[in-house]
Design a protein around this nucleic acid. Structure first.
Lengths: 334, 334
DNA sequence: TTAAGTTGGGTAAACGTTAACTCAACATCA
DNA sequence: TGATGTTGAGTTAACGTTTACCCAACTTAA
């Protein structure tokens, strides 16, 4: 049915090795006319390379397997995939994406996907976190996206949460805001790092005591949609307190939306009375708020792009953790 | 490095065939103790099946390749993928997704992805359309999602646009609206079908002459974000005309949003004066509009799910075109 | 003129797996 | 007792590539 190298060799009156060389063997020495004759023949016969067969010889298939800890179809994952995909263009690599859903452990999914003998593996997390990786993942080409290995054996690409909070806080200060509150996401690595960056910026500006406060956005330790929001309680408390803030930094755009609502109920103008800034840049949300929200965009696509570059670079990278800067998206809330 | 069947066979003192049978050969006759001994050994040695090697033998790899005509990372494609992925759970199949972007023809992408020898292929379109497929795609397992083959050689799953327009129009009629206008998307197959369904519902209700009108939402033949919108012109014209509509059906949620704005400018209440309904169910948009929009949800996930079932059913399906119903999402705009 | 290198291509083995045969040992039945 | 299964496993040959090795013919240089 499908035509193989041998079929072509037979028709061309040469050996399969010659056909293989003619079609795939870059600059191997070979008569130009032979090569062209074979290429034409292969074309006419409708030859399609069998990567599976090549894979048995090489030990791998030109496939990058990406394992994600949550639905691969969320907007964040989509951005990562897009970055990966763009960087793969023309590299003769395909991407195979798997989910870690439905009670399957990392080990299981890893084993499942390894059966395909992918050239490289990427592990992607939805939220910046530290994970424990199965031992095998460290062999061969691997990279972690939006997370770090607990043992530091695998190179990682993570967002620079500390730096992002530092930058946005400095941005607020530069706009003349001195009393700044931060309604943060509790229980998350990103939240911890951002709080550190927030405090560093204030410290450097000598604003430690100018009414800076960090409050949790939700009641429970782990942030999820169903956790009870504390924003509606915190905002009036902040406004009525002694050091009413001139700016509120939100843990993400959803929290910012709630802050908008609370400020509106309190009759405050944004950004006239209180500036609001945030993290995530969920475009649908941020642009539709009134006023449109100034927010720090996560470097998801950048992480995907760099992941692809690392995986395709053919040299085992040192297992470094590379921090990627957020991008400030200025709208009208500051 | 990686352990093979032969390595296990050597250690177990049996032949590779026996190991293969013990690990993969379903109910082949074999001593239970031998099987268990080998399975344990394989586990201890960290054996991972080599699907590439198996693939050379079988002629295919347990891979479903999906080729999409636009960015695989759009929300619609995401829904299709989600449906596919769900249905694949536990079926021992992986999905490999490719884009038809950057000037690559269907033929090229098809040839590229065929090199992996996937078990099945799916072709997915972003918008309901008829496409010309490369000949090879009809061989083996294949299915078309959200589009039809011009020659009808490949089984297809398409949304029932005619029926959806019929249903939503009947819904409007059932709510007492008699004069209904339809601001449709021009130049699209979906638009044509929907217009037919719209007219059928009116005809059946004897409302042919009750002021029914179909107008294009944009000036150009092909709908895109940059096409000049005609909604702001059409709506006042409709309202000021002799048969001011009691309901307006929109080509999609974005058009509905523009209709909202135009009605508001004209001082009309939704749904008091004019009901609005639409197609797409872009949740972000539809729920945030005021009032929330009643709209027909496309069966994207359903298409993905059925595609997976068809592809995995092991029997060549007759190349039928299966139409899938939209789902009415009732909110407050009717 | 001859030794050495170059050019173009063939041979055969290997990659890890599966499948078509084969075969010995044992059980069953007339 | 012998014919007939049945059970369990080994042998061998594929699948379509790539690669290590080899060799003949020709070219080049001393």
């Amino acid at each position: 049915m499908t035509v193989s190298l041998q079929d072509i060799a037979l028709r061309a009156g040469v050996s399969t090795k010659t056909v293989s060389g003619a079609l795939h063997g870059g600059s191997a020495r070979m008569a130009v006319e032979t090569r062209e004759r074979i290429q034409k023949l292969a074309d006419d016969m409708g030859y399609v390379t069998n990567l599976a067969a090549r894979g048995t010889r090489q030990g791998w298939i030109p496939l990058v397997a990406i394992v994600a800890d949550e639905l691969i179809t969320t907007p964040f994952a989509t951005e990562i995939l897009r970055g990966l995909d763009n960087a793969m263009q023309g590299k003769d690599m395909a991407v195979i994406a798997t989910n870690l859903s439905a009670g399957r452990s990392i080990e299981q999914v890893h084993a499942e996907v390894r059966r395909f003998r992918p050239r490289a593996m990427a592990y992607a997390a939805m939220y910046h976190k530290v994970v424990a990786l199965p031992p095998g993942l460290a062999d061969g080409f691997a990279v972690m996206i939006n997370c770090r290995d607990a043992d530091g054996r695998v190179p990682s690409l993570v967002p620079d949460d500390e730096g992002a909070a530092y930058d946005i806080t400095r941005h607020l200060i530069a706009r003349g805001r001195r009393r700044i509150a931060f309604i943060n996401l509790p229980g998350l690595l990103a939240g911890e790092l951002r709080e550190a960056g927030f405090r560093r910026a204030l410290r450097e500006a000598g604003l430690d005591d100018a009414g800076a406060r960090v409050l949790p956005a939700v009641a429970r330790k782990t942030y999820s949609d169903r956790a009870h929001s504390l924003v509606a309680d915190h905002v009036p408390m902040l406004l009525d307190g002694p050091d009413s803030p001139e700016a509120i930094l939100a843990g993400n755009d959803r929290v910012a939306m709630e802050i908008y609502a609370a400020l509106r109920r309190a009759g405050r103008d944004i950004p006239g009375d209180v500036a609001v800034a945030s993290f995530d840049n969920q475009v649908d949300l941020a642009t539709r708020l009134d006023p449109p929200l100034t927010t720090m965009a996560l470097p998801h696509r950048e992480m995907g792009r760099l992941a692809a570059e690392r995986l395709l670079s053919d040299e085992l990278n040192p297992p470094a953790v590379q921090k990627l800067a957020f991008r400030l998206v200025e709208r009208q809330s500051v």
